[in-house]
Structures are given as C-alpha cells and as structure tokens.
Computed example of a mutant assay.
Amino acid sequence: MTSLRHNESADSPRDAYLDAARACLLDVGWRRTTLTEVARRAGVSRMTIYRTWADMPTLLGDLMAREWTAIVAGTSSLEGAGLVERMVATIRALRVNELFVRIVEVDPELVLPYLLARRGRSQDLILAIATEAITAGQADGTVRAGNATAIARGLVLAAHGFVLSAHTMVDDAASEAELDAELALVLSRALAP
C-alpha cells in the first residue's frame, strides 16, 4: 500500500479522498471519523479507501502532512520577507488553520506524538527550509555562526509554544499582535550575528 509518504502526485485522486477526510474531521472530529465515512463522502467504495490507507492514523498522517506543507509552501515563498517574517507568518497561518484549530480543540491528543515522541513530515520540511535559510544567512553574514541544524531545531521548538499556546496568553494585558511582535524579537535575536 502506498500513501503520500511515497511521493504521490499532487493531482492524484487521493486529494479528493483527503478532502473528504478533512470534511469529516471538521464535521465530527477524529474519534467519529471512519474510513467508511470518508469513502461515502468521497463517493467511492470502502475498498478504494482501504486499499489506499490501511487505517485512520495513516490517513490522518497524510492529511496533516498535506495541510501543513501547503501552509509552509505558502509562507516560505512570501516576496521580500526574511526568515523571521516567514516563520512568524507560518505560525500565524497554523494558528488560524481550521483543521489545526479543530484538532487542537476536539482531539488534542493527535498533536502529542509530534511534540513528545517524534517529528512529522511537516516538521522535517519546516526544519529543512529553516536550515537552508540559516545556512544562506550565515554565508552572507546576516545570521550568527553555529550548527545551522541545531539553530533551526531550537527555533522550531521555541515556535511550538506560539503555535499551540499563544491563545492562553492573549487577554486585555497582551494582544496576539503584541505576542507575535515578541516572537519576531525572540527569533531575530536568536539569529543575530
């Protein structure tokens, strides 16, 4: 069985299946979504879905990778933006993504493996983009010297809190925009030569 983990074409019919899975998760959450319901919404047989994904965790992994990769692709190509601006834009986009918000609100345990046990494909993509940008910045003198991989990983770890917990820090004393400005300052100072 193959999945998006095996470099599936972006125009694959699987995108329609993932769209159906996304709709299910938004409507009823992870616990109540089944491969059978995904097949029904996609207008295909259950066996078509079962041949594509053996189980819901595999399907969810592909859905999250597609969703978060699209966000990163959109923010990593922002015209004229530096690394800090792109990272802040990515964090903002994740925080408001309806699938991400739904997962965090209804099924937060789905995020825990990516915080406590292992990196996901999207995290690896973000790390690769950040490492490349840090290496380029080191070459032109705009980023401090050091292990670019370790710097990128440190920045991503710092960003986790701004993605997952920023809403807990927003109130009358500090706005989301002020917290994003603090994030930009943290990232800028962490990268300063």
Rank of each mutant, 00 (worst) to 15 (best):
94 L>E: 08
115 L>D: 02
82 G>E: 08
130 A>N: 14
127 L>C: 02
128 A>D: 14
80 G>V: 05
119 R>A: 01
94 L>T: 03
101 V>F: 04
114 Y>I: 00
106 V>L: 11
142 T>Q: 08
118 R>T: 12
112 L>W: 10
79 E>D: 13
131 T>R: 10
84 V>L: 11
146 G>V: 05
110 L>V: 14
139 A>N: 04
85 E>D: 11
79 E>N: 10
135 T>W: 02
70 A>C: 00
124 D>Q: 10
87 M>L: 03
104 V>R: 15
123 Q>H: 09
128 A>H: 04
73 A>W: 00
64 M>W: 05
107 D>N: 14
67 E>G: 07
94 L>R: 15
121 R>C: 00
120 G>W: 12
114 Y>Q: 00
113 P>H: 01
110 L>C: 11
130 A>I: 03
80 G>T: 08
100 F>S: 14
66 R>L: 01
101 V>W: 02
122 S>P: 04
144 R>I: 05
92 R>E: 13
132 E>I: 00
91 I>A: 12
147 N>G: 05
142 T>V: 13
118 R>P: 02
85 E>W: 01
116 L>D: 06
85 E>R: 07
138 Q>E: 09
130 A>G: 06
68 W>H: 13
125 L>F: 15
135 T>K: 13
84 V>F: 06
76 S>Q: 15
107 D>A: 13
70 A>S: 13
117 A>F: 13
136 A>V: 10
136 A>K: 09
147 N>Y: 06
71 I>M: 03
127 L>Y: 03
137 G>S: 07
69 T>M: 04
86 R>W: 11
67 E>N: 15
93 A>W: 08
113 P>I: 00
90 T>P: 04
115 L>M: 05
118 R>E: 14
80 G>Y: 02
66 R>H: 12
63 L>K: 03
138 Q>H: 10
142 T>S: 14
132 E>Y: 04
102 R>Y: 03
70 A>Y: 08
69 T>A: 08
67 E>V: 15
145 A>E: 04
115 L>S: 10
140 D>A: 12
91 I>L: 11
118 R>S: 11
93 A>N: 03
118 R>G: 01
134 I>A: 09
137 G>E: 04
96 V>G: 12
141 G>E: 09
132 E>N: 08
145 A>P: 00
141 G>P: 03
106 V>C: 06
70 A>W: 05
146 G>E: 07
105 E>G: 11
122 S>T: 07
87 M>E: 15
144 R>Q: 08
112 L>F: 11
105 E>K: 14
79 E>K: 15
68 W>G: 03
83 L>G: 04
69 T>E: 09
145 A>N: 05
134 I>H: 03
69 T>V: 01
141 G>V: 06
65 A>E: 15
121 R>F: 00
110 L>T: 09
74 G>Q: 08
64 M>Q: 10
101 V>P: 01
125 L>T: 02
87 M>K: 12
139 A>C: 01
76 S>D: 15
135 T>H: 03
68 W>E: 02
70 A>N: 13
146 G>A: 08
101 V>N: 02
94 L>F: 14
120 G>M: 08
125 L>C: 06
121 R>I: 00
142 T>H: 10
98 E>F: 02
